[in-house]
Design a protein around this nucleic acid. Structure first.
Lengths: 354, 354
DNA sequence: CTGTTAGCGCATTCAA
DNA sequence: TTGAATGCGCTAACAG
């Protein structure tokens, strides 16, 4: 970025122009230190500041010991409605507390994620919130742990959303349980052959959802060897790729579990283009219940998470907890069955199934 | 926010521990000033810094004359896909240039918008981008003009998306033309009686779209007194309210123009619940072509704007232009007719209409 | 190549 | 109530 030339109006300018000392100007403008400035004097100073368009230098203020009133939020992709909803919650609480939110977008890169945390630490953010899924990587985890550790040790707050396996305040969405509930619901409907469109297993969220789903199937007596695992990016395009793979390999699955709504969106696109009828030929489910899912035709079955509340909770945990404790707040997941799921054609809705 | 207790590891600590001067440590760690530090010495210092978990204080760096590599982005609502798309463009370009983006969410309050700009100025942001519509308010405009003026005068960049009538770099989406094209298309289809679900006319974007639409209708000979103006908030809920008003007053309109897709979404919800068939009973159109519109059933006719490109362009304008010039980059709007629009039932698709 | 000196703009001790 | 002095952590001159 460009170097900024001088030309700023400083507190000293305001003080000189008002005929007072910088200290007095500072007190008049920001009322610090419990000290009070004479009514008329203050008014005069404020007036001069306005006339000069004085804007305090936030860096100087921070450096001189004041608070930065800044919160760093790390997300994978701000255009993903999942993160948008969480961000909304975080921003709302931050606003209530007079803090500004800085959003860092990592596009799912571990290096970038660490880099953002370091940058936020450099900015001395009052709190750092990690909204994205953690990675299944020992080095990453150790590095992140150290960063957050120091963040807290130096008086800053932090919180993570999703399982990161880090000793910091954590907001835990029901991933295993929700996916398990979905699995049971599908089995109860009569499905026996499944495909799972999963993101990369290095994402903890992905792994948990898949495990929860498979565990439930196994518990219901479904042979897991019949489950096709489609491993693709955790994105709309990834969903598209998964659906294409499904089609290409001539899958016999009657139900497709996409580990996120966004992936389901992509998959549905490809399926529609290929003439696959949902749910008649194939039932499709997603995860998160972002607002769009209920409006599609057919409306998409999914698992509801109160994303905005999770964001709010994360922000609150981040600012309200010292380095001592690391509370965990769990958010329940609720299976929402809609029109994109139906008993498989081969197994009419006969009672009892099997 | 909480005050941050001390405990930070400083450059001085690293220097002392390494047995060198702070200046040397600074150079070794950040390689500034063209000066070079001896290979082995540097390595030792870097090692010490790592061991101590040294994180430079960004405020001190900024204060001492370095760049802040920070960009402030002001939006009305980050969960609105319109802004999410623009933000994505802004973030992408900022990332290319090594800058971090700070997002401020105003929820359409003029005061908050000004407050964010002041805050970004206080943070000495390298650039400030206003992504939301401007307001039709002389005081607001004058205040914003002064703020941005000073931002630029002090070496910072800035840019606005949408008509703000400010002498700064501007990205202009086709609002009047797009809305006019929509109006003509609807008239060509045979529609004569219209309703317009508009946001508050104090938003410049809203006013331009409505004016463009009405002008086109007038040019086509449609009596404007037959156009019902529904004035509601510029949001999904506003769209809902507009549709309810339409229903309540027993409107005879055959086509509903919603000034944004998000409003159209809300309106469609209410219409569906009320049993109004789209497009058979009522044609509905939106604006912006956010990704969801093409997936709804019926797919929604709208006006396409390349939002992400607009965001990219704004960011580029902001950093590449000094206070001298204020270029205007126009982005074309393209009418996209889909299934939510059809000739009105009363006027079968007879050639020529009228 | 490295150390020394001097501020960046502000809030906050202290003294008056 | 106000003013003077100090230092936050760092970088950018200058010397050496």
């Amino acid at each position: 970025m460009r170097i900024r030339p001088g030309g700023q109006v400083t507190l000293a300018d305001v003080a000189r122009e008002s005929g007072v000392s910088p200290a007095t100007a500072s007190r008049a403008l920001h009322g610090g230190g419990g000290r009070v400035v004479g009514q008329d004097l203050r008014e005069r100073i404020v007036e001069v500041a306005r006339r000069l368009h004085y804007v305090p230098n936030a860096h100087a203020q921070a450096l001189a010991g004041g608070s930065t009133a800044t919160v760093g939020l790390v997300v994978h992709d701000i255009t993903d409605p999942y993160f948008a909803a969480i961000a909304r919650g975080v921003i709302a609480v931050a606003a209530e507390r007079g803090a500004l939110v800085t959003v860092g977008t990592t596009f799912r890169s571990m290096e970038r994620e660490l880099e953002f945390v370091r940058t936020f630490r450099a900015q001395r953010a009052d709190a750092i919130v990690l909204a994205g899924s953690g990675f299944e990587d020992a080095d990453y985890r150790a590095a992140m742990r150290e960063e957050l550790d120091h963040q807290r040790r130096t008086g800053g707050g932090c919180a993570v959303v999703s399982e990161h396996d880090l000793p910091v305040p954590t907001v835990l969405p029901g991933n295993r349980e929700g996916a398990a509930g979905l699995g049971r619901a599908l089995v109860a409907m009569g499905h026996r052959r499944f495909a799972v469109a999963g993101g990369p297993p290095c994402l903890t969220t992905v792994r948990h959802r898949i495990e929860g789903f498979l565990d439930a199937l196994a518990a219901c007596g479904v042979p897991l060897c019949d489950v096709e695992l489609l491993d693709h990016p955790f994105s709309e395009d990834g969903g598209r790729a998964a659906a294409r793979e499904l089609l290409d390999r001539g899958s016999r699955a009657t139900a497709l579990f996409c580990v996120s709504d966004v992936m389901a969106l992509g998959a549905l696109d490809v399926l529609a283009a290929a003439g696959v009828a949902v749910p008649d030929d194939l039932s499709v489910v997603g995860y998160n219940d972002v607002p769009m899912m209920r409006r599609l035709v057919p409306a998409v079955s999914t698992v509801r998470l109160d994303l905005e509340a999770m964001g709010r909770s994360a922000m609150e945990l981040a600012v309200d907890h010292g380095s001592a404790d690391a509370p965990v707040v769990r958010f329940p997941a609720e299976v929402v069955l809609r029109a994109s799921t139906a008993p498989p054609a081969a197994v009419p809705a006969r009672e009892g199934g099997r």
